[in-house]
Amino acid sequence: MAQAIADPAPSTRPPDALRRSLGSALLYGLGFAILVWSYQGADIRPMALFADAGNMATFAAEFFPPDFAQWRYYISEILITLQIAVWGTFLAIIFAIPFGLMAAENLSPLWLRQPVRRLMDSFRAINEMVFAMLFVVAVGLGPFAGVLAIFVHTTGILAKLFSEAVEAIDPRPVEGIRATGANVLEEILYGVIPQVIPLWVSYSLYRFESNVRSATVVGMVGAGGIGVVLWEVIRGFYFAQTCAVMLMIIVTVSLLDMLSSWLRRRFL
């Protein structure tokens, strides 16, 4: 763009434009080809939705009216799910702070940064669900396996986000502190942390929100909480109860989203 403006000879423009439009045509073509190629593998059958519409309607009808008979039990299990998310997120924050600082380009030497980053990559690359299945084997069925699964995965995510916030700080206040004879720990505590704290709080709250959702899912592989209940009622074809559980999860998650966005506004 800037080149085209700077160039006084208009004769060079048409080939440029042509090349650009050829390039984008190729890109669109490639995108279309990928969609076509994936169509079969993903077994896309839109007609099935209509052909089996009757089944779908029967299936949906069984969800209503929702059956709240055991609501006390559901609430106590939802609380366990929240408690899993609270501890998983808390442990992750505690560990993500040193890992995040060690992964930041402007604080950490290459020999430390690279191994820490790769470790965090591997924490992040594997889904909570997979970790949950492994921890269920290691520490047995129940909420603690869920806590560990969420903790490990979230540490990987928060460490990356924390380190990116650290890399974006203004280096000048830190240099001002260094010039007083402070050591590296003091530079970080007084110069770096105050600059990143609003972002760190915000990221942590976001992760807590999504960890509540994850805690529901990890429950389904036996790691405790409302997820276990959900899995049982679905497997037992108790659709009215399934509906009740799902509605209660939706309400819980919405309330927490509201609470956490209110908290975030207060910190930023």
Binding site: R172, P173, E175, G176, I177, Y190, G191, P194, Q195, I197
Partner: peptide
């Protein structure tokens, strides 16, 4: 320093 280099949030 020219740009003061204070920590703004403290």
């Amino acid at each position: 320093f020219q740009q003061f280099n204070l920590v703004n949030r403290l």
